[in-house]
Design a protein around this nucleic acid. Structure first.
Lengths: 104, 104
DNA sequence: CGTGGTGAGTTCATAATCTGAACTTGCTGG
DNA sequence: CCAGCAAGTTCAGATTATGAACTCACCACG
């Protein structure tokens, strides 16, 4: 009925958007994403897999012998960046008013 | 670090955005939201409560004796609409490719 | 007046999901 | 050979969501 439901079905969980954000930053290593997002390894692994399955993320092997993969945004994933930008803008405006003003 | 995490902390669950979407449509009755989103009553109730707590949604009592409440978007909630719009656009472009082209 | 229906929630037991920690696998460094 | 990093996976346990049924309160009906 409305793309929102479809969108949320793909990226509507707690870590997908965070992971996508990291990918948008150019962070493509599993451990880095895991640390930056705070997601549990298992959850992140599953999420990355879903995202790859949805075509939002692409997995590139940057080392053969030790199986080292790197994740990249696909076209579809990159298209999500504007939405993420809006979300971030909103978050900074409404969800983090605590850090406005003097430090602490 | 980034507003996205904060934003997701508030609206990053499965039903929040859907509920917000309904509110954006002007649908403010509990049952209507529940039916339109498909969210379980209990989940929706909890979510609406969180959203109200976060200041994204306002509860207006439109009937006293039979406790009938109606939900409205606040300023903060309305500010989320652009993000929802982006998300919807993305969803229609990438998350619902099944309806592209001839049926079947 | 008693019955049934609508609307908004709540409660409860169950089920699914997520979480953290430890474990693998494969190679590199000492 | 042993330790360590990197990417995942596995496992048991904790959290949370889910659906169905139930409550309250009123309104309409016969």
């Amino acid at each position: 009925m409305c793309g929102i439901a479809d969108a949320l079905a793909l990226v509507g969980d707690r870590w997908a958007l965070l992971a996508l954000r990291e990918l948008g930053f150019g962070v493509g290593r599993f451990n880095d994403i895991q640390v930056n997002t705070g997601a549990p390894r298992a959850s992140l692994s599953a999420r990355l897999r879903s995202l790859e399955d949805c075509g939002l993320v692409e997995r590139r092997r940057y080392s053969e012998h030790p199986p080292r993969d790197e994740y990249l945004l696909t076209d579809a994933g990159r298209d999500l960046m504007p939405a993420l930008g809006e979300l971030r803008a909103w978050g900074e405006k409404h969800a983090s008013p605590r850090v406005r003003g003097t430090s602490s």
